[in-house]
Design a protein around this nucleic acid. Structure first.
Lengths: 356, 356
DNA sequence: ATGCTCTGATTAAACGTTTAAGCACGCATA
DNA sequence: TATGCGTGCTTAAACGTTTAATCAGAGCAT
C-alpha cells in the first residue's frame, strides 16, 4: 500500500481512503489509485486490517460430529453462503463429548472469529460465548436461530404414506434424545392421521442389547402387518431397505420404506429411496445473514448502542420447509398380501420426481 | 499484555519474552508473569502476532467437492491433525470446475494461510501457488505428497476374492479419468492374478447414455457367470448390492460384492459390506507434518536459506497402507450355481472383523 | 481585506504483538 | 583499577492497515 502511495506521490492514508471510498478523495485520484493498485498486484493484508478494525472476516463452524453423513451438505452450504458474504470459514469438530465442543469453541474464539455457526450436540444449550452465534437445531428448541422445519417434513411424508393407503407403519429413529428426530416423528404421526397405527423403534436401544449393526427384526414386523417403515434418517432407511430385501421382502410392492435428508446414496440404490430433503442453502443463507447483521455495524444506528451483541442471533424466519422427494421405495400396500413371498418386478429407477 | 506489564512494573517486551521463553528473563519473573497472565485471563491476540510474524497459524483445506461422501473422514482427520499442531483450518470448496478451485485457492491466500492441503480435482495439477502445499492424491501422481496406497488396497481385495475362489469378476468404477480409481483397479487385477477373468465397467459411461441412477444390468452379468462385483467405491458397491438383491440374487451366497473406503453405511447394511479402508488419520498426520516442516524455520539452519519453500511439500513416506475389512458381502462362489434362485439364509451381521 | 466554510489531502496515533539493539550492573579476570 | 563479559531488563521499531484530527488553499459572503 505504501508502494502505491509512493508511486503516486500521495500518502498511504489517501490510498486507503481511495480504495475504501470512505474519506474525501477526488474522483480522478481514486481512479489513479485503483489503476496503480491493480498494476502492482496489490492485495490488502487482511491480518493488518483485522488488527486495526478488530474484525477478522472469519466465521467459525462448529459441528457435533464431522463424520455425520449430513455434514457435507451443511459445510458446503455454510461455506458457500459465507464466502459469498466475504467471510472465511474455520471448522471445528466437537468430536463426541461436550467438553470437546466447549474446547472447540474456545479455539475458534482465540482465533478471533467474528461469529460462529453452531450445530449443537444433542441436548446441549450454547452459553453466551462472547461473540454472535447462530444455532442450527430445531424450531422447537429454545435458542434456535434457523433450521429445517423437521415437523413439517415428517408431516409431508406422513400424508404421502397415508394417501398411498398405509395404516400400520413402523417409525424408526436412532436416538430418543434427539430433538430433530422427535420433531420428525411428531410430524409423521400427525401426517399419518389418527386412523393410522404407529409404533416407534429406537435403534440405539436395540443396539444397546444386541450390539452395533445387529439385525432389527424388520421381517417379523412386516409379517406382523406393518406395511410401511418410515425412518427419520436415510441411513436407517438404507439399513431397513437392505435388511428387508435380504429377507426376500419386496420393496415397494410388499412394504414401503422412506427416509430423511436425501443423502448421497438415496437416489442410486435400488429401489431409489423416497425421502424428504432440507433446503440447506436457504438455511445457511439465513443463518449467515443473521450473523452478519449482528456483526456489522447497523447503517442508521444513531443511538450509542454500537455494541456488538454477543449471544444467539435470531432470524425473521426460524424454519424453512422441507421438500418431499417421491422415488421408488414407496407404493400402495397390497390388499391381501403374503409378505413372505418375494415378488421381483420390472423396477426401473429414474431420476427422482420432485413434489411439493 | 500491557496490563500484565503494568501490574508487575515491567515492560511489555519482557512479558512477551517471559511467555514465549525466548529472551533472557529470570526464572522467578517468568513465574510471576505466568501467574499474572492467568489471573487476568490473558489470551494473546493471534491477529497481532500474525501481523508481526507474518504467520497466521491457519492452514487451508481445499476439496474437490465437499458433497463427496469421503469428505467427512478427510476433513475430520485434517482438522484433528492441524489442531493438534496448533493450527486452524479454513475450508474451501472447489465445487466442480477448475476455475472454482483456482478461485478458492486465491481466497485462502488472501486470508494469509501458512500452507494448504489440497485434494485435487481429477486431472488437475496444482501450480505453485505461493505457499507450501500438501497434495493428497495418489502415489502414482506426480506432485503427490502423501496418500493411501490405493493399488495396495486393490491388491489386498483382489487376493481376498481370489482366495475365496472367484475367477470371473466385474470391476466397477465411476470415472475412467480418476487416478485413484485406476490405481485401485490395477491393484485388484494384480491381486486376482493372471488366471482370473476381469471386465471393467465405468458407471459414468453407462449413465451418459441411460441417464443418472439407471440400472447397471448386473443381474445379466451374474447370469453371464460373474461371481464377484468389485466396486472401487462403497457408493457403487451399495448400488450394486441393492440392484442385485432387488433382482433376487443372493449376496454373498450367489455373488460377492465389495467396496472401497469403509463409508458410514458399509457396516450397517445387510449384508454388511466387505471393503477396504484408508488410514486417514495417518495420512493427515503426515501431510500436516510435511506442511509444518516447510512452514516453520528449520532449527539448525545455519545457511541463509531461511526462505519458506513455496511449492509442493514432500513426505518421507508417500503412501500409507490400506486395511482390508472382511464383512458379510463376500463368500465362496457356488460350484454349480443357479443365479436366478433367491436363497435367503440366516444372515447375522456383526461388527466387522479386521484383517491385515 | 477579513472571516467562514467546503474540499482534498496529510499527519499521527493506534491495534497487540515480536525482536534487534542497547543499557546498567555485578562479577571475574588481568 | 581498568577491561571484558554475562545477565536481566528496557527501548524502540516494525508489521500494514484504519481513522480521527489537522491543515492548506479555494471560493464566497461579509
Amino acid at each position: 500500500m505504501s508502494a502505491i502511495a509512493a508511486a503516486l506521490g500521495v500518502s498511504a492514508a489517501t490510498v486507503s481512503n481511495a480504495l475504501s471510498g470512505k474519506g474525501r478523495v477526488s474522483p480522478e485520484l481514486i481512479e489513479k489509485v485503483r489503476a496503480k493498485a491493480s498494476e502492482l498486484g496489490y492485495v490488502p493484508s487482511l491480518t493488518a486490517r483485522a488488527l486495526r478494525t478488530g474484525r477478522t472476516g472469519v466465521l467459525g463452524l462448529v459441528l457435533p460430529d464431522i463424520a455425520n453423513p449430513l455434514f457435507p451438505q451443511i459445510a458446503q452450504a455454510i461455506e458457500n453462503a459465507a464466502s459469498n458474504a466475504g467471510y472465511g470459514v474455520l471448522i471445528a469438530d466437537s468430536r463426541g463429548d461436550i467438553a470437546a465442543q466447549t474446547e472447540a469453541i474456545g479455539r475458534l474464539l482465540e482465533r478471533g472469529v467474528d461469529g460462529m455457526v453452531i450445530v449443537p450436540r444433542r441436548g446441549t444449550r450454547i452459553a453466551d460465548v462472547g461473540c454472535p452465534v447462530a444455532v442450527i437445531d430445531t424450531p422447537s428448541t429454545p435458542g434456535n436461530t434457523v433450521s429445517a422445519d423437521h415437523w413439517d417434513g415428517g408431516s409431508q411424508m406422513g400424508r404421502h404414506l397415508a394417501e398411498l393407503g398405509h395404516r400400520k407403519v413402523l417409525l424408526i429413529g436412532t436416538s430418543a434424545s434427539s430433538n430433530v428426530q422427535n420433531d420428525r416423528i411428531g410430524g409423521l404421526k400427525a401426517g399419518l392421521g389418527a386412523q393410522a397405527e404407529c409404533d416407534t423403534m429406537w435403534i440405539e436401544k436395540i443396539e444397546a442389547v444386541s450390539g452395533e449393526g445387529c439385525p432389527l427384526g424388520l421381517a417379523d414386523k412386516a409379517r406382523a402387518g406393518f406395511t410401511a417403515f418410515a425412518a427419520v434418517s436415510d441411513l436407517s432407511a438404507l439399513r431397513a431397505l437392505t435388511e428387508l430385501q435380504r429377507a426376500g421382502i419386496g420393496v415397494p410392492e410388499t412394504v414401503s420404506v422412506t427416509g430423511f435428508d436425501d443423502l448421497i446414496w438415496s437416489a442410486v440404490v435400488t429401489p431409489a429411496l423416497t425421502t424428504v430433503r432440507m433446503d440447506m442453502a436457504t438455511i445457511a443463507d439465513l443463518a449467515i445473514a443473521a450473523l452478519i447483521r449482528a456483526i456489522e455495524p447497523e447503517g442508521e444506528a444513531e443511538n450509542g448502542a454500537e455494541e456488538i451483541s454477543t449471544g444467539n442471533v435470531t432470524s425473521e424466519t426460524d424454519r424453512v420447509p422441507m421438500q418431499l422427494i417421491v422415488r421408488q421405495s414407496t407404493g400402495a400396500p397390497q390388499a391381501g398380501r403374503t409378505p413372505n413371498l418375494h415378488a421381483p418386478t420390472s423396477n426401473k429407477p429414474t431420476a427422482g420426481e420432485l413434489k411439493s
